[in-house]
Amino acid sequence: MDTAAPGGGNSGRKVVVRVKRRPDTREEPRWEEFALDWRPHMNIIICLRDIAERPVTRDGHATTPVSYEASCLEEVCGACAMLINGVSRQACSTLVDSLEQPIRIEPLTKFPVVRDLVVDRSIMFENLKRMKCWVPLDGTYDLGPGPRISPEVQEKYYPLARCITCGNCLEVCPQVNENSDFVGAAILSQVRLFNAHPTGAMHMKERLAAVMGPGGVADCANAQNCVEVCPKQIPLTESIAEVNRQAIREAVFGWLLG
């Protein structure tokens, strides 16, 4: 039963949250600790909202609200990925009651920090373009409707289309770091999706040429963390192996058989 009114804290139970703050990226990050009133079904976004409502640290110092990104609050927009107790996940679907306290909240480490918990994930969009994860449709004349896709094929590939570009799969990947330009699992999975699409398949060779280039599929070293952490349960390791198979076939037989 709800005994505590929102923000009221009648139950007296507290949630201790430590946030890695970096309001100004020219400065070093620092930790701030907050003691929030516990509420049933509280998730991490609610914690950050409560801090914004009353930005006072646990030891009584006034501070600023924590910057963070969130939109859908139901794990479909991807915006709220962050490190929670050291694990990369979506803040909106992470329940406080499932976590050990104090709860440590940090920004993702594989993307540039913009402010506090906000990171810049535009590299993922750049890499989608680099690996040609699109279907070119604009031309000088009407191309007519594309080929039909059977329900079986739709069903098989729909899961790949559920990617929300959250970046969790890149965050946990040992191969994605400042020494490498590996594009990561999400992008390789989109390569598979667009190669499977009947219109996209018309550009498979160009896509494979890109994916066999720098930062492409060969940089995957099979740690398979991506598939463990993907909030949309996308079969990322199957996608990568499939793209590997297509690329190998192209490399071994492409020059031979055309």
């Binding site: 070119p136 191309l143 720098p214 060969a218």
Partner: peptide
């Protein structure tokens, strides 16, 4: 051709070859 992506033949595929 209306359905052409930018050329990508310039991609260096040597790392792919050596990795495999």
């Amino acid at each position: 051709h209306p359905l052409t992506m930018s050329a990508s033949k310039t991609d260096d595929q040597s790392a792919f070859f050596w990795r495999k």
